[in-house]
Write a protein that binds this DNA or RNA. Structure first.
Lengths: 337, 337
DNA sequence: AACGTCACCGCAAACGTTTGCGGTTCTGAA
DNA sequence: TTCAGAACCGCAAACGTTTGCGGTGACGTT
């Protein structure tokens, strides 16, 4: 913030009137004469006066700024979410402070404190993989801030949330594999402290059970990164009875699996089919193209922001937390047909 | 910003002292007795007092916030840059307001005004494809804000900037194709109003000329998106004398080319080699893996932010704009061997 | 006792903007 | 002429925090 920007005081001094009159003239207040209004508005335009949003924030106890805490910016899904957030916030005249936790709890706590200090009006959160204690998020609520969780939600905290039905989506993905003849399906699972990790695994298990298949614990592997998938896939291939399908918790993991398979000369989908999750930009790029659950990142960001803005702009006396479940559809491509 | 957050006034009232004493006690001021300091600090901790950053901003004419204007968040390179920006800002105790222009000039102008109004301390900018008038950026400087351009810079404005040597990188990429025997190389070029578009084309042309090859205008096509590349590649294949190499201005465009080629049964790189630019996450995912110029997004964001923070934290009397050129190396993979 | 110094605070003003309330002047009606 | 109401402002205080300066009391020295 620079001292060389024009303030209401500058205009007042030049016109020989008081700052309160300048303020009222700029707001077209009925008590101010037309002559004064014209003079003020012309000078403000000429001097390129911009209201000081910081001073307004202090005066009104409202900053028109929302905070966003996400695990990682460089991730197609999350960057899509931020894009949706920023577009909706922009349309509503809000600015967006972006914080990444880099999947670290401590960083997430520091981010929460910083946002509280900056007096943001509300916060959109997707928690880090490490986060198992939620005091810092409760603190935000106690500070009067509405929270909206998205994707990685926290059932322990009463708040609005936007999700897809991870269990249902995973169920569909696994069922698709089963309907295409796969009988031994591995699941590359995300962290089980995150609800999305649990739900995706539950959906997978439900489809397995419904098909009367035996759930084999050896086919459920903790692997939610490209690198882990490279290793995990190699491991699967050493089994006496390797799988004929892989359902991965995200696209990059699925791609890691695909590449391991292809390096071993395994034909996809003929020998082993692969399904991902999130429908990132990659899915139309791999060979064969990746079947994937469309997670609607941009829409998730948009909806979460709309819910938050509604909380801010239309406060209601009774708080009923809202859960919006976005449709998640399976997009079938070459990797699983 | 919520009225339920604890202020210095609350602590002052509870302890029966003045707000200025609370402030000084919190800052360990030597004029304040040890007894008072202990009482203040204990109560502040108990009440979870957090300084009001908005009030501090107003008082100090400094917000410890930097603004970022980028063309598009959902883009691997830019999301990498933001990640670098956020990490460096966080370490320095700064927050980051993120604005995307969606490649629209009008949006970029509105973003600039909003950042000025929010009294950010400085701005990091990569301009939109549409931007040919820079008054809104000059306005930021006139408002006292230091600017740092990155990637898409504006030579017309005297400011700090962080780039890779696009011309040199493109020269290397094209030369690599030539050294691998390619004699008819197409260039999928970016917008020529952007310096990066011009420089990449110049580097391409220089390599062509140095090799004693004839530059064929029909081989230079305006195509900087995946979709445009699908079409442009098909068009190239209808030529009497199709190219044997393609140098694309970014990775997604290169991938579009690859997919068109593969759909027509063209072997990559045996028949036509492909080189991209930016070394996004995709390059290790395509088949064959894509040769690409590594654009160092995260490093670019980090360096740009460090330069900006230096401007803010160590102001110098004489302003000498700084240009940092990051190394850009060609990473050779299967698409061009 | 008087004076000077130091410890330890509180007052007041600043930052930019807004808004309630009251002051001043003018005009019209009684 | 007097009074009331309206037009048109300016003052003062608020928001949260900081910081210069001055006030007050205690203590030590002359």
């Amino acid at each position: 913030m620079r001292s060389s920007q024009v303030t209401i005081k500058d205009i007042a001094r030049i016109l020989g009137i008081s700052p309160s009159t300048v303020s009222r003239a700029l707001k077209n207040h009925p008590d101010i004469s037309e002559e004064t209004k014209v003079a003020v508005n012309e000078l403000a335009l000429k001097l390129k006066y911009q209201p000081n949003a910081v001073a307004l924030s202090l005066k009104h106890s409202r900053s028109n700024t929302i905070g966003v805490i996400i695990p990682e910016i460089v991730h197609y899904f999350f960057s899509s979410v931020i894009s949706g957030i920023e577009d909706v916030a922009y349309e509503a005249g809000f600015t967006v402070i972006i914080c990444q936790s880099n999947e670290k709890y401590d960083r997430e706590v520091a981010n929460a404190k910083m946002l509280l200090s900056h007096r943001v009006d509300g916060v959109l959160v997707s928690i880090s993989k490490e986060t198992t204690n939620f005091d810092h998020l409760v603190m935000l609520q106690e500070g009067g801030l509405p929270l909206v969780f998205f994707d990685r939600i926290v059932p322990e905290i009463i708040a609005d949330q936007v999700i897809i039905n991870d269990e249902e989506a995973a169920y569909k993905a696994t069922k698709h594999l089963i309907e295409n003849g796969r009988r031994r399906i591995a699941h590359f699972a995300g962290p089980q402290n995150l609800l999305i990790g649990r739900d995706r695994k539950e959906g997978y298990l439900r489809a397995i059970r419904e098909a009367g298949l035996q759930a084999d614990p050896q086919l459920i592997i903790d692997a939610d990164t490209y690198e882990k998938a490279l290793i995990a896939t190699n491991h699967l291939l050493t089994m006496d009875n390797p799988p004929d399908g892989i359902f991965a918790t995200n696209d990059l993991t699925a791609i890691g699996a695909m590449q391991s398979l292809q390096k071993k000369g395994i034909k996809i989908p003929q020998q082993i089919a692969v399904v991902g999750f999130s429908d990132g930009r990659f899915s139309g790029i791999t060979e064969p193209n990746l079947t994937s659950v469309d997670q609607h990142g941009y829409e998730m960001g948009s909806v979460a922001t709309e819910i938050l803005l509604n909380r801010l702009l239309s406060p209601s006396e009774t708080y009923v937390p809202q859960t919006r479940v976005l449709s998640a559809n399976l997009i079938v491509r070459g990797s699983s047909k």
